[in-house]
Amino acid sequence: MTLLGKTVYHASRLGLAAVFIYAGVVKANDIVVFAGQIANYQILPYSWNYLVASILPYLELLCGILLLLNMRVRPAVLVLFVLNIIFMFALSSAIIRGFDIDCGCFKPDSANPTSPLAALWRDAGLLLLMIVAWFLRDLKHPVEAD
């Protein structure tokens, strides 16, 4: 891989790691409030908001740590990619239904809430980073390719 490719790969990996470690830590810090933010989307039954809020932060955190350590990058990216797609569906649904809610992406009680539309654009950017990390990891470690 060229120096540029390596640089882009590591920048993508570390960028994703920073985002998801931060997101995981702040959400895990207050599960109840995060459950309330999931409930704002009015997609899941009430109890299921707590179940998702109890698991999701740790999944983000674990994937973020693996990306930071440059270990199991493609499985971690795959999980985050699927999560991101689900987030984007939820955000789109909130936009379509006209909900004026905080996206619940990071700090649960943030003084500066992020609108679903802004969050959707940010998720699109993260999706791009994931695609870059996935394919450049493939080049860097051909053994993971078929």
Partner: peptide
């Protein structure tokens, strides 16, 4: 990836 999900679910 499934193992990652299972681990996170177990921790959470």
């Amino acid at each position: 990836a499934i193992i990652l999900c299972a681990l996170s679910a177990a921790v959470g």
